[in-house]
Design a protein around this nucleic acid. Structure first.
Lengths: 219, 219
DNA sequence: TAGTTAAACTGACACTGTCCATTTTAGCAT
DNA sequence: ATGCTAAAATGGACAGTGTCAGTTTAACTA
């Protein structure tokens, strides 16, 4: 496990790629290949299509070859989820740059970015939160998630006058609403069917009440 | 499928129970028995433990017996989810009675009820939203979910002065935040670890900003 | 060049959901 | 009471899965 570097492929996704093959390694970089095929299968067939054997098949290796790189299916899905979260973190940070002095706009931008990501790649977003499939305690995964959360916290760091609760409570409230709204929409529950009532996109209106409550409390 | 009545068992769960056995029916009421065993397995082992064969085993019948009552595993899980949603709907309606003239308190009660249900029976709550396992378009399931949503809508129906958005937008915002917060807590993400900062329970504080934004907009 | 060692392969096992043909059985018509 | 019928329940089979074990392969190293 030496001489490992992080390279960013065209999908903006981090994959471990080794400079030299280690002893006994026949395939160029099977781990990266497996993750790529896993993401493909995820986008097309959903998480149920991402089986060890299907990934191996698409990579052109034996059904048990992935075992050398992932101790279990859960570990493989966790690695895929980590890539996805890293991607989301990058996009998040990019979305809120130059908005550090406009917290309310920045929160909107943060949310917009989440909405766009989730509706664009629903299967990827949903995998992130499947506890029975993904090991949520994995340190690598946790690190990438923390990057998203930190970005949100940084938005709330400035301009803290006249606020009822601490920063983290606001952050959790915001992310909860964003995540809950996305989840229900992706699940096809309630929201989608009734989301054409107002002329402005509902996911914008959803946030307004909350932001108003945060920045104009107890009038 | 005649002479079907709804009886409420000791768990407060609706199960179809037939007065008379239909022709050829050997077991007393296998469908209800299977659903009971399914709920047991769900509570103990999570949704992954609720397999057709495990349910059949626990009910003491052949592995293919459930096929006579549920065309697929998804259909079985959908039936279980319907029972759970019916239970949640009953509890919801009960929680908000006598609060019809105090909308802000009623919203808090609605949320408290959701929190309690989810943290008390996490596996049940999580099943409700697993689209890949549960058929979210099922009419029976949809009906029970609609009962919860209607209860929430009724809280927002009165006292609609000086509100920026329509009722449904507020309802979706509220339920999104509740559901998102629960989801993240149950997934063990972010929230749980940081949820001891304030002295008052965070899930109460979470809602305050939103309610404030809804009822005191544009101060 | 020979040895070492991780990677990849083949095979097997238990388990799953689902289909199939068969047998059982409760209720109905006779 | 006695068949008849149709639904329920059975046992077997199949393809697919995750995972484990033993074996072979091949890249680096000494």
């Amino acid at each position: 496990m030496d001489s490992v570097s992080l390279t960013k492929n065209m999908d903006g996704v981090y994959l471990k790629s080794k400079m030299k093959r280690t002893a006994g390694q026949k395939h160029g970089d099977l781990r990266a290949e497996l993750l790529r095929e896993g993401l493909k299968l995820l986008d097309i067939h959903g998480v149920n299509g991402v089986t060890i054997r299907a990934v191996a098949r698409n990579a052109g290796v034996a059904h048990s070859a992935p075992a050398n790189h992932f101790p279990s299916r859960g570990a493989m899905l966790t690695a895929i989820a980590t890539i996805i979260f890293a991607d989301l973190a990058d996009l998040t940070i990019e979305a809120i740059t130059d908005l550090s002095d406009k917290p309310e706009q920045a929160i909107q931008a943060f949310a917009e970015n989440c909405f766009q990501f989730a509706f664009d790649k629903p299967n990827r977003y949903q995998l992130l939160w499947q506890r029975d499939l993904v090991d949520q305690d994995d340190p690598s995964l946790d690190k990438e998630m923390e990057r998203v959360y930190s970005a949100l916290l940084s938005l709330l760091g400035q301009d803290r006058v006249n606020h009822r609760v601490d920063i983290e409570t606001d952050a959790i409230a915001i992310w909860s609403m964003i995540h809950g709204y996305i989840s229900m929409r992706l699940d096809g529950n309630l929201v989608a069917a009734k989301d054409t009532v107002t002329n402005l996109p509902r996911h914008k209106a959803i946030l307004l009440s909350l932001i108003d409550g945060i920045y104009n409390p107890d009038k």
